[in-house]
Amino acid sequence: MFSEGIKDHNTFAQLHPVVTTAWFLLVTGVTMFSNAPWVLGLSLVLATVYRILLNGKKDLKGSIILIAGATVLVTLINGLFTHNGATVLFYIGSNRITWEAFAFGLGMSMMFSAVAQWLICFSVITTSDKMIYIFGAVLPVIGLVLSIIFRSIPLLRKRFSDIDAAQKAMGRGQSKGLIRRGRQLIKEISILTAWSLEASIDTADSMTARGYGLHGRTSFHLYRFERRDFLSISYIAALAVAVIVGCIKNASRIYYYPTIRTDISMMAEAGRILFMTAFILLLIFPVLTDLFGEYAWRKYESTI
């Protein structure tokens, strides 16, 4: 099961799109506005775990490349180009290279890679339908535009392959030279454009024939807000209060410059522990939901 990944056939993905989207917004938001290594580290670890749970073992390699790449790149750039910080490691020319700048770079790279990992998870969970629903709920026309775009991609791809085949059958496009191939590509794109513009007249007719442009358009969807969605959103909301208060009180932040200070929180020890507990409970929500769903399914299968 886990080697292939569970994709979006999982319990978390079956929740109402509002719930899953709210969860992703909250988690990526907190990650983005934090710079404390313990917050970022936790976020990064769980994002990676969840990505591998969703997409399978093959994404382990991708995750490592992403994290390692971001770490090296961001840490080096910040370390070499930022000269703030009190602890000087060495000089390049007259530029100070400081320990704090490297540390800040490391923190930022964790932040970037965690957000990237979460976005990958988000794209698995939030299929095109959900995206359309979410945007359509805000403004119906955006939902429709997205839907048209998702419709056009396979259509244009098919048309392009038809054009390409037709041109190849005329003996075009097999020539080697870069310029000739470029010219052929431009020609094929121009055919695609003309054809698609022509076809879009039909699409426009079909839209107006079905009343597009009338006042007060609604946005249809197939989602229902069920009891478990209510329970989930309540769980998330309760944790969100604790986490957001923690963030406001700087429990998720440290100072990197001029020297690293980790004691900037305006909260008492208990408050910080509460913040971290709430954050952990929030982060493990999808993993827990999915594992529980998987367990329930296995139990169901074993009883038949």
Binding site: L144, S147, I148, A199, S200, R210, G211, H215, R217
Partner: peptide
């Protein structure tokens, strides 16, 4: 209309079925 392909506006069957009804609000 004539062309089956270019009359379809949205990406999912259920959404296409609902298109006109959405317009009517």
């Amino acid at each position: 209309l004539q062309n089956p392909e270019s009359q379809i506006v949205t990406d999912k069957v259920w959404h296409e079925l609902a298109f006109g009804l959405e317009s009517l609000g």
